[in-house]
Amino acid sequence: MSVPAPAFDVDAVVLDIEGTTSATGFVVDVLYPYSRARFAELLTERAVEPEVARAVAQVRELTGEPEADPAAIEKTLNAWLDDDRKATPLKTLQGIVWAEGFGRGDLVSHFYDDVVPALRAWHLAGLRLYVYSSGSVSAQRAWFTNSPAGDLMPLVSGLYDTENAGPKQEPASYRRIAESVGTDGSRLLFLSDRPGELDAARAAGWHAVGVRRPGEPYYEQGVGDHAQAGTFDEITVSRSTT
C-alpha cells in the first residue's frame, strides 16, 4: 500500500522522464515514429560516424549477428521499438535523430504543467537536479533544451542514462550515480513512475517517490509500498544548510 509523500530534506533530486516529468504518450506517438522514419538514412549515410558505428556494433553484439547489414540493423531497431525495449544502442541512435530534430525545430518536448514550476523552485532553493532516463544523454539534453518553457538545461546539474550509469532497475546504477555526484544516497531523492526503479533506488539507500499520473502505463499497477504523488506539487523537498 503506497503512502503520501512526506517532506524530504535532501541535497539533490534525480528525475525520470517518461511518465514522471513528461507524458509517455508523447514519446511513443511523436518521437518513436520520428526516429523510425530516419533510421535507414542514419545507418546507410552516416555509418562511419563514431557514435553511430559504436551503436551498430552493440546491436550486432546483442543480436549475435556480427555481419548484420544496415537493413538487418534497422529491422532489429524497429522490433525493439515495437517492444519498447530499453536497449542502449537503440536509445543512442534515437538520441542522435531526436537531437537533430529538436535542433531543426521539428520537435518540441513535453512536460506536465506542474513540473517546470517545481523544478525552478527547487533549483532556486539550492537543490541540485539530475536526470536519469533510459533515453540517451544526448536525447535528454535536447529534451530539456527544447521545452515549451524554453531552455531548462541551466536547472540541471547532470544527465545519466543506461550507458553511463547502468540499468535502471539495478541498485548498483544508483550507487554509481551517487558516487558520481559526490552525494550520499541518503541525501538523494529519486522520482519515477516505475516500481522496479523505485525499489532499486531504495535498495541503494536513496529516498524515492512514485509519481502516479492517470493515463500513464504504470498508473493502475501503482508504486508498491513507496510514497506516492500525483503531481510535483505534492512533493515537498528542501535542503538544510546545517
Rank of each mutant, 00 (worst) to 15 (best):
F190P: 00
D233S: 11
D151K: 05
L188M: 07
A208R: 02
V131I: 15
A99C: 08
V116T: 10
F39S: 09
S186N: 08
A204K: 10
F102H: 11
H226F: 12
L191Q: 05
A142K: 00
S134I: 00
Y32E: 13
R104P: 06
G101R: 05
S133P: 01
S238E: 04
S136I: 01
I73T: 10
R187W: 09
T24K: 03
R128Y: 08
T76R: 15
M153I: 05
S2A: 15
V10P: 03
L127H: 13
Q58P: 03
V209A: 09
T162E: 12
R128D: 14
Y32D: 13
V27F: 14
L119V: 07
V108E: 15
S240R: 14
E41I: 01
L43M: 08
S180Y: 03
T92R: 15
T20Y: 09
A204S: 05
H110F: 13
G166S: 05
D193N: 07
A165W: 08
I177T: 04
S109M: 09
V13L: 08
P70E: 10
Y132P: 05
E41Y: 09
E49S: 04
G210H: 12
F26V: 06
F8Y: 15
F111D: 05
F26Y: 15
S173E: 06
Q94A: 07
Q169G: 05
G166C: 08
E45Y: 06
D199Y: 01
G158I: 14
D161E: 08
A71D: 11
D29C: 00
V237C: 14
